[in-house]
Design a protein around this nucleic acid. Sequence first.
DNA 1: TAACGTTTTTTCCAACTGGTCAAATTTCTG
DNA 2: CAGAAATTTGACCAGTTGGAAAAAACGTTA
Lengths: 230, 230
Amino acid sequence: MPPIKVKMLETEGGKGGAKAAPSKRPRAQTRIQREKQEVILEAALDVFSREGFRGATIDQIAEAAGMSKPNLLYYFPRKEEIYQRLLAEMLDIWLAPLREIDSVGDPVPELRSYLRRKLEMSRDYPRQSRLFANEMLQGAPRVLEMLESDLKALVDDKAKVIEGWMDAGKIVRTDPYHLIFSIWATTQHYADFDVQVRAVLGKDRGGEGRFEDAARFLENLFLHGLLPKT
Amino acid sequence: MPPIKVKMLETEGGKGGAKAAPSKRPRAQTRIQREKQEVILEAALDVFSREGFRGATIDQIAEAAGMSKPNLLYYFPRKEEIYQRLLAEMLDIWLAPLREIDSVGDPVPELRSYLRRKLEMSRDYPRQSRLFANEMLQGAPRVLEMLESDLKALVDDKAKVIEGWMDAGKIVRTDPYHLIFSIWATTQHYADFDVQVRAVLGKDRGGEGRFEDAARFLENLFLHGLLPKT
DNA sequence: TAACGTTTTTTCCAACTGGTCAAATTTCTG
DNA sequence: CAGAAATTTGACCAGTTGGAAAAAACGTTA
């Protein structure tokens, strides 16, 4: 499956320093270039995921990256470019777990591992989750197209897989789309609403253990629900 | 229970036009004052819920409210004030459903109606939900305190109610906190990630009917889970 | 080490930002 | 209707913003 594309403004394919060498010949990327770009993206993820696109400033990002604003702009000539790059990178890893859902597998281990993987993503990549959430809140101006095409296609596909499980009587007949939504919602909640979760759980239960608790809870919820088996 | 307080910068208690009448006597609010403030808050909700605090500009809000920037500032001298007012108003209605959960009731209708009410809020007040989500993504700088005190207390209380149900064998023994989180997450998802939901469901299923479908699905999920009763 | 390409810094700019202020206009009240 | 109070407007301001330009500093390699 091809990597997800956010309409990108030609992110400086590798001219060797954005503004240099007009039409001479595309040089390979320097070590410094790779490193600094990494640092910048890292810092930008921090800022964008907190403030959203409009709320974030190049100065903030530059400061977080430990360099001057013009220096940063040397590597990424536009704010928009950094953001879109992060978004695209993000969407790719973010949807990987869903892609892995396999029709041949049994639903129980399959769903269980999907839940777990999504929860692990929330634990290990919370900023990416928040970046995406921010974009959604703004109405997804930059990814709407891809949601309607790529994402929809992917979910349609997996919904069919789930329906297959229902046909085989392996799981209860229900709406596969809303099932997927609820898995997204419950797992991403731990990244996007992390502050709230910690605040409510309090000092004692708000530590790393919360993810284990959440995993156990969600597994039970999705498999058995709340009512005792009569 | 007292209304939730966000530390507010004295939102102009009613001096009758923010800058007027220094120390004369607090006049009652004019009709125009009430009306315009309403219009402004309405417009501000639109903008803040999309762009977040930093991303929103007074100009945008003024334009959406159909007035000039200085005119808007006549009613709310600070951007921060508008935002905090919205936040406080919002938290109050937002938590109402949770407050209503009753210990004497039976868990099934009680949880069912909580789910429904929360989902209705997502349908009827999506902007408020997104406003709150935006605040959470930013790390809840303005409401963290109240989350740690008021909200925690409220959830602690309701968690006890739920535990009572477990003790009585009415529902399966599980973590009441994560149960509440998952109800929040699943229901608010339909407001916060509305674009995504619509995009994935497509034109045909993305209409208003999606809330009925979601309600049915969530009810089943929370009560019975996915595995067929053996 | 000289020459060249890369990286960084300094300076600058026009547009936008939140907000002020006084004057002009409108609305209300007696 | 007159006068006072409330509302609206236009001009303005200092600080911030995204970004351009050019020069200075640095690194590499012939």
